[in-house]
């Protein structure tokens, strides 16, 4: 899967923005938040979105330490993968630089862009703050 070179429009733009410290999400007029790409709000059907700044910090709501990974993360194990709430959006990200046992629900994190040790591919991560 790593041989794919085309960008994923929308999501790669989002990662670029997170890497630049300008993370954003798509907000529909009714306040529902999503990651790109989206053409319609799955919650209310609205088709107009505005870019809103992603909160600088979020809160971990659930975390697991992965010991058996897919090949593209084989050299990264063990790593913590977590859901973290940033206002109206919940992101899935990795916390490789942190001891997995220290990542617990309630932890405050900032979004970041990481590189897989295995493939060098970039991915969404969280930095504890």
């Amino acid at each position: 899967m790593t041989e794919d070179t085309a960008r994923d429009e929308g999501y790669d733009d989002f990662l670029d923005a997170v890497a630049d410290g300008d993370g954003y999400y798509l907000a529909c007029p009714n306040g529902h938040g999503w990651l790109p790409p989206r053409r319609v709000c799955p919650e209310c059907g609205a088709r107009e979105f505005s870019d809103r700044p992603l909160s600088a910090t979020g809160t971990v709501t659930a975390v697991s330490t992965v010991h058996v990974a897919a090949p593209q993360f084989a050299d990264d194990t063990p790593y913590a993968v977590a859901l973290a709430e940033f206002g109206p959006v919940v992101l899935t990200g990795q916390l490789p630089s942190h001891a997995p046992e220290d990542v617990t629900p309630g932890l405050t994190v900032a979004p970041t862009v990481l590189e897989s040790d295995t493939t060098g591919d970039r991915l969404l991560g969280f930095d504890p703050v």
Binding site: D8, Y11, L35, A62, V63, S64, V66, V68, A69, A70, F73, D76, Y79, V81, A82, L83, L91, T92, G93, Q94, P105, S116, D121, L123, L124, G125
Partner: peptide, 19 residues
């Protein structure tokens, strides 16, 4: 895009649900 790219495996997804 939103899950697998960040290293979420299937067991990990159910682990998050359990948590």
């Amino acid at each position: 895009l939103y899950e697998v790219s960040a290293g979420l495996t299937f067991p990990a997804a159910y682990a998050l649900m359990a948590e």
